[in-house]
Design a protein around this nucleic acid. Structure first.
Lengths: 213, 213
DNA sequence: GTCTATAATAGGATAGAC
DNA sequence: GTCTATCCTATTATAGAC
């Protein structure tokens, strides 16, 4: 919610010919303001296709201001990607730690969380693409994936023990076995929802529930 | 095999200071030669990070020659992506149409096919990223996904009927229900094998077999 | 700290000779 | 058809004023 508010103010500034008046209500730092504007650009045009001029316009700031916070375009892009992914992870970690969730409920929660914090899932798909050719992006994507895996595991363990009547040891074995497929279901959800015009989220989640639940 | 042979010749030419002597044994057209060189660049540096100068070097051809075949960098990139995906689809379609395959066998065949025709899977991950911001790339990725879905369906239908003792109608219902998850397992395989240092392909395929087989 | 103006260059595309 | 040389725009990054 904070993120969305800040972005609105950024767009307004850009429309009003870049008057950098940050009211007291906007306690978000300039750095966050820049990250918000850059994120909006990257979502719309992608990391590489976005020029720094696009960022200046979106943030309502000048070249000098932006470059005083980020030494290069790459540094800015990395910071945007890092913040986007850490935001997702914090959201997952913020759910009550011992709340058992079924696989489909977990997927629904995570995907819904993407939207809620104002980071469209397309940025994640872009990050995967960059990760294929850039070590810095690769590290971010890999770290995030490991983090999600740990989060998924923590949520699925109590669910498996409770619902399937397993001992803790058996639940661990079961969860560790299905975890890669569970992750794949999340990745597939993002990709298919972007690529398939006839993608049906409910049908997808129902299939997850039937196979993993 | 043809593709690999052509690429070897390209690299050799590049090392030998760009002597564009195409022997009679190389019946591959110049167009394919350019596509091969560009593909090698895109695999290594990505679509956007590759400059046309990189392509000239990798193909052993000059600017004028390349631009006489492709009017722009975008046109070339689109052609490379189209050829890569159609190659994958042809490989899938080339398998005997009525050969039943289990989900894990199917995945193994498709992923192995990627390597065999010399198109690393990283190019597909990159294509997904471009698809998030470029309509032309989006169309290619979407078409390919629909094609793979149809191919998977054709292979899984007889398997489901034979192995699970279903009528044709029941098999269709079952396959259509699990198809999105099956696709997700393929997508997840590509992503996780690139991102996770400890990715275990055999363990992954075993989990697919247990859950879908 | 921020802005304007500009330096420096990379990179896509073309022209014209051969 | 292909090569060399070049144009010229787009873009990153910086310098210096305020």
């Amino acid at each position: 919610m904070l993120v969305l508010y800040t972005r609105d103010s950024v767009e307004t500034q850009a429309e009003e010919a870049a008057v950098p008046k940050v009211s007291a209500a906007h306690k978000a730092s300039r750095r966050d303001q820049i990250l918000d504007g850059a994120l909006a650009c990257f979502i719309e045009r992608g990391f590489q296709r976005t020029s720094m001029a696009d960022v200046f316009e979106a943030t309502g700031l000048s070249a000098g201001a932006v470059y005083s916070y980020f030494g290069s375009k790459q540094e800015l892009a990395i910071a945007v990607a890092k913040r986007a992914m850490s935001g997702q992870l914090e959201h997952l970690a913020a759910s009550p730690p011992d709340t058992p969730m079924s696989p489909s409920m977990l997927l629904r929660t995570v995907v819904g969380g993407f939207e809620r914090i104002g980071v469209p899932t397309s940025i994640i798909v872009q990050l995967w693409g960059e990760a294929a050719v850039d070590p810095e992006f690769h590290a971010i994507a890999a770290d995030a994936l490991v983090g999600f895996r740990a989060g998924f595991r923590a949520v699925l363990l109590p669910w498996a023990a409770a619902t399937r009547g397993l001992t803790d040891t058996e639940a661990e074995a079961w969860v560790d076995a299905v975890l890669p497929i569970m992750i794949a279901c999340g990745q597939g959800f993002l990709l298919q929802s972007h690529l398939l015009p006839d993608f049906d989220a409910e049908q997808y989640l129902a299939a997850v529930e039937r196979l993993l639940g």
